[in-house]
Design a protein around this nucleic acid. Structure first.
Length: 245
RNA sequence: UGAUGCCU
């Protein structure tokens, strides 16, 4: 069991989700009963390959074995529904954890918030965010990342700036994703001074921009017809050995 | 040995 789980993890780590599935089938054939970790890994392999329906089927198979599911198993199922764009199903799985007497952690909330945000249900997403303290949970850097992405896409600069400060006041360090949300928001608005200000501040903080971060910067230059600056961004990316998307 | 965030 231990060996199979490690193998599935290793294959998944190098993008060979097909081999993870093979190990899963093989262990069942050999009479080794998969545990919740095994099931979670197979579901995650399906998610990474875009086979969300298959992930859900494995989830149901696991529940049918009568084993007690854990937080990771359920959150992996939530991810499958989230990627399918089915926020209500995400909510159902989340609530089923509570019905079973489980205590969802902040990762579950993050998935839930993101599912609602991606579905355009900003009100619902905010409700789950605001509810965190009542559940005895503290938002983490990913919670803020999700919330900042939402504020950015929604075009709510005052909320985004407030969230950013709140995040920092909690001692959470901004990373390429959170800085990038700020850049993205102002890029979409064509607010070049603020794009520059946030991008520079990111660099000053010692954060290394990633491909999406550069893309947000590019977006502003494209929008403003600044062709030379676009070329420069691409050159910088290439100099850094990055593969533009 | 397993889950959650930004572009594509």
């Amino acid at each position: 069991l231990w060996l199979c789980n490690r193998l599935m993890s290793a294959y998944k780590g190098v993008g060979r989700t097909d081999k993870s599935l093979e190990v899963f089938k093989w262990m069942k054939e050999k009479g080794t009963l998969p545990d919740v970790t095994s099931y979670s890994q197979v579901m995650d392999a399906h998610n990474k390959a875009g086979r969300y329906t298959a992930a859900v089927e494995v989830f149901e198979e696991c529940l049918a074995t009568g084993q007690d599911g854990d937080t990771i198993l359920f959150s992996t199922a939530m991810m499958a529904y989230s990627r399918m764009g089915d926020k209500m199903a995400v909510k159902r799985v989340y609530e089923s954890m509570i019905d079973r007497g489980m205590r969802p952690n902040v990762a579950c909330s993050n998935i839930l918030i993101n599912a609602f945000s991606k579905a355009g249900d900003y009100r619902g997403a905010r409700r789950y965010f605001d509810d965190l303290p009542n559940l005895g949970l503290k938002p983490d850097h990913r919670t803020y990342s999700v919330m900042l992405d939402m504020a950015s896409k929604e075009g709510q600069p005052e909320e985004a700036e407030a969230l950013f400060r709140e995040m920092q006041s909690l001692g959470l360090v901004a990373d390429a994703t959170t800085w990038g949300s700020m850049v993205q928001m102002y890029s979409r608005q064509g607010d070049l001074p603020r794009v520059k200000r946030w991008f520079r501040e990111m660099l000053r903080s010692g954060c290394h921009p990633t491909v999406p971060t550069f893309n947000s910067l590019l977006f502003a230059f494209v929008k403003l017809g600044m062709y030379n600056e676009c070329r420069t961004v691409l050159e910088v990316m290439q100099q850094r050995g990055m593969q533009p998307s």
